Amino acid sequence: MPVRKKSKFEQWFSFSRHQRRFGADKVYAQLASVDIEKLKSDIIAGDQIQYTHGSAKDLNEHIEQLKHEFVGQPALSHYHASLIVLIRREVDVEENFEKFKALWMSERDFLLSTLNIRWLISACDTFLDLHDDVTLKATLMNAVVLINTLKLQETERYLCDQTTVMCEEKRDRLPQERVTLFDGTSAFVVGTDDTLRNMRWRLDQICKIHPLGMIVLEIFDRLQQEQNNTVYLRFKKQHTREKTRWW
């Protein structure tokens, strides 16, 4: 059983919960009236991208630190992240979630083209926590499960000295015999298997149900790209049967 999530009543007595909302007034003054078109064209200045590790307890300080993640990118990306932070720290949740929803419905394609996977998944998590559309929540859960599974697999690879050398003898044997992995699951037949193609077909269908299902498809497509060295890309490079391609 996972750890029980604290009730809202229990959360109320947490000092750290209240502490993480300090500085909200200053943040609100900055975000009170935003010009979306201007934020799309304004580029955040800086020398290099620096990702935050952990978060400052002061809300204003944390949001300022987040700007370093978006150096060279549209200010709208930082605004999107700021809304998520406000929602996570329970600052006027309903009002900020309405802004967040409106932003995604009006600027979906722009956000898909500018946000990295980290913030696309944060967007999915935010919709999962607060949206009342069960279909959308079920669709976006695909992306969260997909990325968290890869996060574990790629972390294990990092901890194991990042070895990616494939045993050709074992690979060539896969089409000839069934290799059991765990609990009745068999190994992916590298080069010809149709498992991922069939999964992609189903993913395309479910993601058509809601306009924001495109977030899931965008994330899945990025996992096949050269700059993201994931197991999906590595198996893509080994794939030989055009009929069963999944990308």
Rank of each mutant, 00 (worst) to 15 (best):
T195M: 09
K8T: 00
V190L: 12
Q153P: 02
L128M: 13
L212C: 09
V91Q: 07
D25G: 01
F13S: 01
H53A: 08
L130H: 11
F235W: 14
D109P: 00
K208T: 02
S77W: 03
A187P: 04
Q238N: 14
I147W: 11
K236W: 05
A32Y: 07
Q11H: 01
I49C: 10
K208G: 00
H78C: 02
P175C: 05
L76S: 04
V216N: 04
T135D: 13
F9I: 00
Y158K: 13
T164C: 11
I87W: 05
K40Y: 06
N116V: 05
E10L: 03
W12Y: 06
T135Q: 13
V85T: 15
Q50V: 14
D193W: 00
G184W: 01
V27A: 05
Q30G: 02
L196M: 09
F220L: 02
R171M: 09
S14R: 14
K6A: 00
R200M: 06
F22M: 13
Q19N: 12
I43R: 14
Q65P: 04
R118C: 10
I36V: 06
D183K: 10
D193I: 00
G54L: 12
P2I: 01
L233H: 13
V190K: 09
P175W: 09
L31M: 10
E107D: 15
Q162N: 13
L103G: 02
I44K: 06
F100T: 04
R241T: 13
V190E: 08
H18R: 14
I49S: 05
E61V: 11
M1Y: 04
F22Y: 13
Q19R: 08
L83H: 00
R21C: 00
H80Y: 15
T139S: 13
C160Q: 14
E169L: 12
R202V: 08
E64V: 10
E168M: 09
V216A: 04
Y79Q: 04
D92N: 15
R108Y: 02
G54D: 10
Q48L: 07
N60R: 06
T185K: 05
T139M: 09
F110E: 15
K99P: 00
T164N: 12
W104I: 10
I43G: 14
N142H: 15
I63K: 03
L217T: 15
K237P: 15
L217M: 15
V189N: 04
T114E: 12
T114M: 06
S77Y: 05
H239S: 07
G213W: 13
L31F: 06
H78D: 03
F220A: 06
L223D: 05
L115H: 05
Y28K: 03
L103I: 07
